[in-house]
Amino acid sequence: MDELEELYQEIVLEHNRKPRNFRKMDDPTCTSHGFNPFCGDTITLYMTLDEDVVTDVSFEAAGCAISKASASLMTQAVKGRTVDEAQATFGKFHNLVTNGANGGEDDESLGDLVVLAGVRSFPTRIKCATLSWHALRGALEGEETVSTE
């Protein structure tokens, strides 16, 4: 597979065309705006929490295929999880996009998110993949705006 196809796997392209949970939320528990000054991509992330469980998560974004698909995949990955699980997933995901897949337990627990492993070969695009996760963390930690810089 060439690097381009590894970056833009079919699942990525498909999530870009039809992002999941791509909507404004009316009464979120918390929200955060993410901004990538490098390319101008923006995201607004909305979350509903029940105690420490993420019961709903959605986003609105203007950005590239990687940032949109990553956000879409993220919403699927964290819905129904606890806040701690979501934060831990971010750690593993960050490792995946900076160091690549390692074929171990971490990869398995990331599920569909591993399709973004190809980002590693494109250092300028790593922040595209992590923007939505920064916004997620911002929302959980009460930061209204976060930047990837």
């Binding site: 060439d2 390319c39 991509d41 695009r125």
Partner: peptide, 12 residues
């Protein structure tokens, strides 16, 4: 097609 994706595609 976001400019960033286009830029990466053309670079290839």
């Amino acid at each position: 097609v976001h400019p960033h994706d286009l830029g990466t595609f053309l670079d290839q």
